[in-house]
Simulated assay, not measured.
Amino acid sequence: MVTAVGISKQWPVKFRLMWAALRTGYAIPRTFLPDVYSDDALICFNNDAFRDDPAFRRAYARGVQSIGGEDFYHWEWRFHIGLWAAISASKLDGDFVECGVSHGFLSSAIMQHLDWDRLGKCFYLLDTFGGMDPRFVTDAEEDEGALAKSQAALDFGIYANSVESVRKNFAEWKNVRIVAGTVPETLDQVESKSVAYLHIDMNCSPPEVAALRFFWPRLTPGAFVLLDDYGQRGRDQQRLGMDAVARELGVPICTLPTGQGLLMKPAV
């Protein structure tokens, strides 16, 4: 079984070479322009001073711990957005929910940063911990290779394939509930009637749409909803699905250059 420990060392040689080429591609702009941010599908000339903040570094390090101590994600700016949304949501009434947890990179970092058990909130973490369920993959997504990509991510350890390893990652906190299974079938296991933070990252449109529809009535006014893949190229089905729900709800989705989408429950 592949675990989060030493994942990249277990990758096949071909995959390692492809990954090295990708990392080199990001490193080239930084070589000639040291102040530029170049990672995770984002090249940005603006200030990224948040990366030097000690509290941010500690939180990011906790996320890296969840994947075995080696940062093969390089998600700093995307992580920054997620951490900001969680910090803001922590000041609202309501629990936290993440649909699509994998190893728990972002969610465990959030809990470390917020001194989680002190808040009196519960963090619900929903995932199959076994990749995509084919029953909920659209024909268009299957044609685009979603199932094959999911299986490869499981094989290479990029996706968590063991709920036990994820439970171990979150063992230091009491106010957390890990729900293993497929969304939408597990949604009714979230007992909270008030949600301040919702992170959706299932790489597949039908369960993501189902999660947003399910939790919208439970969202606290001002609550934050973060869509991990909304603006990423090749994720058109997820974007279109969320756009349709957003139109029904009468709320706009903000597309972020990190590839995420962000929306808030109106305060009135």
Rank of each mutant, 00 (worst) to 15 (best):
I7H: 05
K9Y: 09
M18T: 09
A21R: 14
R30Q: 12
T31P: 00
T31W: 13
L33M: 12
P34I: 07
P34A: 05
D40A: 10
D40R: 05
D48C: 11
D53R: 10
R57I: 04
E70W: 08
F72E: 04
Y73R: 11
W75T: 04
H80A: 12
G82T: 02
G82N: 11
L83N: 02
W84D: 08
A85P: 00
A89Q: 01
S90Y: 03
G94E: 01
F96C: 03
F96D: 00
C99D: 00
G104N: 07
Q112C: 06
H113C: 13
D115A: 14
L119W: 00
K121N: 01
Y124L: 03
L125Y: 02
L126D: 01
G130C: 15
D133R: 05
E141W: 12
E142A: 15
S150N: 09
S150G: 15
G157F: 06
E164C: 08
V166A: 04
R167D: 00
K168I: 09
F170I: 05
N175H: 12
V183Q: 00
V183K: 00
L198I: 05
A211R: 06
R218L: 07
P221E: 05
G222K: 01
A223H: 00
R233V: 11
R235T: 06
Q238L: 11
V245K: 09
V251N: 06
C254E: 14
L256Y: 09
P257Y: 11
P257I: 13
G261K: 02
L262V: 08
M264F: 10
M264H: 03
P266K: 05
